[in-house]
Design a protein around this nucleic acid. Structure first.
Length: 322
DNA sequence: AATGATTGCAACCGCAACAAG
DNA sequence: GCTTGTTGCGGTTGCAATCAT
């Protein structure tokens, strides 16, 4: 037995709103507020509409501070970044974009930004393959474990754990390779993490100075675990740090993907070795990132428990982004 | 100019969470 | 603790506008 419908759908008007209806709703809400009851509002306002419909119309279209279209590059980055880390939680994403509604952000993602992001990722991946092949031929050495493992086509656009269930219904059977494992359930997966590091280093390595001794030492540990040559590992780490500090486009993509390959317990190169080094280079930005990328307090505590940074504020998501 | 395909967006649907009685 | 009503959310649909042939 299902729940009774909120209104009689046969007796209320549906479909597009007329300017007269918009004006009735707007003036009523501006004069009286919603009264905390959308179901009763249409009757009071003299509208032959379902309360849910009124609410949606007000929130998505009539509210005075709504922006439509004209998304900026920064907004694109925020959407991509948050989608990558928390999935299709549009209300949370929209709350970080003043004037944007969840419906608007969702439509924008589905119709435009997703294609743009996929195209960008394909290009990045192509560049990485070229970069990697050049490295292999240049060194003449054996292939790196992990770093040489190509990730699936949809790697950085995979649905996050938060959206895994909905993605499962949407994806075709052939898309099975595009699903994330649980973000924190696996043990340390250093080779994969190194692969992520290495993939992102391509763009930034060229402009970096040689890594300082401290980084070289950290890199040796990384190399030991991941079979990555120390110089490359250090360069990758430095690239990561500098990228975060510099606020380049890839910073939004890097951390969620890195975190997506597994957790990094204390004693691990990421959990206990790299973290202090990263903190030296900008603890406050790390805290911000932690606050941004951990949607739940539990996940944030896990991050903090590994002594990476102080726990982010409980409110969680991306205060600093907007 | 006609027609079919694609795109963009507003609106709807159903479910889950929450609140009130 | 249970039932009922309301709100919030994300997925999906419908349709007008635009584009391609």
């Amino acid at each position: 037995m299902g729940r009774a419908p909120c209104c009689d759908k046969t007796s209320v008007k549906r479909g597009p709103w007329s300017p007269e209806e918009d004006e009735l709703l707007r003036s009523y809400v501006q004069n009286h507020g919603t009264g905390g009851n959308w179901i009763a509002l249409p009757h009071k306002a003299g509208l032959n509409r379902c309360g849910k419909s009124c609410r949606l119309r007000w929130l998505n279209y009539l509210r005075p501070d709504i922006k439509h279209g004209g998304y900026t590059e920064q907004e694109d980055r925020i959407i991509c970044s948050l989608y990558n880390s928390i999935g299709s939680r549009w209300s949370i994403i929209a709350s970080k974009l003043p004037g944007r509604t969840d419906n608007d952000v969702k439509n924008y993602w589905n119709t435009k930004l997703k294609k743009k992001a996929i195209a960008m990722h394909s290009q990045q991946q192509q560049e990485y393959y070229i970069h990697h092949q050049q490295q292999q031929h240049g060194s003449g050495g054996r292939a790196r474990r992990g770093a040489g493992t190509p990730r699936s086509q949809c790697a950085s656009m995979q649905p996050s754990p938060a959206s895994a269930s909905s993605a499962a219904t949407a994806a075709s059977p052939g898309d099975a390779a595009c699903s994330f494992g649980p973000m924190y359930s696996s043990p340390s997966t250093l080779p994969q993490a190194t692969a992520v590091l290495a993939r992102y280093d391509g763009a930034a390595t060229a402009r970096l100075p040689p890594p300082p001794p401290q980084q070289q030492q950290q890199a040796s540990s990384l190399a030991e675990f991941s079979h990555t040559p120390p110089q490359q590992a250090a360069a990758a780490a430095a690239a990561t740090i500098n990228t975060w500090a510099g606020g380049l486009a890839i910073d939004d993509m890097f951390l969620p993907e890195l975190l997506g390959v597994g957790d990094f317990p204390p004693g691990d190169i990421f959990g206990g070795g790299l973290a202090p080094l990263l903190q030296d280079r900008g603890a406050s930005s790390l805290q911000e990132l932690a606050a941004c990328y951990f949607p739940s307090a539990q996940a944030a505590e896990m991050w903090a428990a590994a002594e990476h940074v102080k726990p982010p504020p409980p409110a969680g998501l991306c205060h600093s982004l907007t």
